[in-house]
């Protein structure tokens, strides 16, 4: 039985600045959970805190029975939580293939590197043709695919995607979302940060709305679609 990712009473931020205040929420196993909310209100910070890039000031984060807050980024990945960061953060001077192989850096993932690579290539066929290209020279859409593919290589239990549609052409967004819904159908636990609330509502099992670093609303995707006033209040849509 896969485990839920549980955030309880989390306070985190950068230096003296606190972004998340006493935040609690749950990412259920096998579901797609979406985080929405205005920019600068803590969505990315939450992902960075979960993956251990920034420390929690108080509160804790658990994956099932295991406490993962305070472990450090490398140990969090080893527990199966994979973060596909905003802006891709590829390794610019490596080839596409090397970038993907870095995704399976940890020994556990490395043992099934071959199978994972086949899986990524079947989900994102374009990458197969670009294997030897240097990442720096890719287009925006291709970079995004490498970023997501690199995340998939880790064969993690929870995949966190930070704004996978940001700055892409509509046709590429569609391709990316096809991949995401494929992952959802395959039963992966997904945590998706999405700026476009309607798109999130359309695909997510559960939606959390973050405002000023706290949870402002929580419900299913369908419920969100029936609450236009929420979007107006928080997102000005």
């Amino acid at each position: 039985m896969p485990d839920d990712l549980v955030v309880s009473h989390l306070t985190a931020g950068y230096g003296h600045q606190t972004v998340l205040h006493d935040l609690s929420l749950r990412v259920e196993a096998g579901q797609l959970t979406a985080l929405i909310g205005p920019n600068g209100h803590g969505k990315t910070t939450l992902l960075r805190a979960i993956s251990g890039l920034i420390p929690a000031k108080s509160g804790e984060i658990r994956l099932g029975e295991t406490r993962i807050s305070g472990l450090g980024a490398a140990a969090v990945v080893a527990r199966g939580i994979v973060h596909v960061p905003q802006g891709d953060l590829l390794f610019p001077d490596m080839t596409v293939l090397e970038n993907l192989r870095m995704g399976a850096f940890l020994p556990a993932a490395g043992r099934r590197e071959k199978a994972a690579l086949d899986e990524v290539f079947s989900l994102l066929p374009k990458l197969r043709d670009r294997q030897t290209q240097i990442a720096r020279t890719l287009s925006g859409g291709e970079r995004r695919m490498v970023g997501i593919g690199r995340g998939l290589m880790a064969s993690g239990r929870v995949l966190m995607l930070d704004e996978p549609s940001l700055g892409l052409a509509p046709i590429v967004i569609e391709q990316i979302y096809e991949v995401i819904s494929g992952l959802r159908q395959a039963g992966r636990s997904l945590l998706l940060v999405e700026e476009n609330a309607m798109r999130a509502a359309g695909i997510a099992d559960r939606v959390h709305l973050l405002d000023h670093g706290t949870l402002a609303w929580s419900g299913t995707g369908t419920q969100l679609s029936g609450r236009p006033e929420l979007l107006e209040t928080y997102l000005g849509v």
Partner: peptide, 24 residues
């Protein structure tokens, strides 16, 4: 080598290397 890759990854993008599980 795997460790050599980790060194290059760290040099090219520190945060990304950490997210791949590299102990920088």
């Amino acid at each position: 080598s795997r460790i050599g890759m980790a060194i290059r990854a760290t040099a090219q993008n520190r945060d990304a290397a950490r997210l791949m599980g590299v102990r920088i």
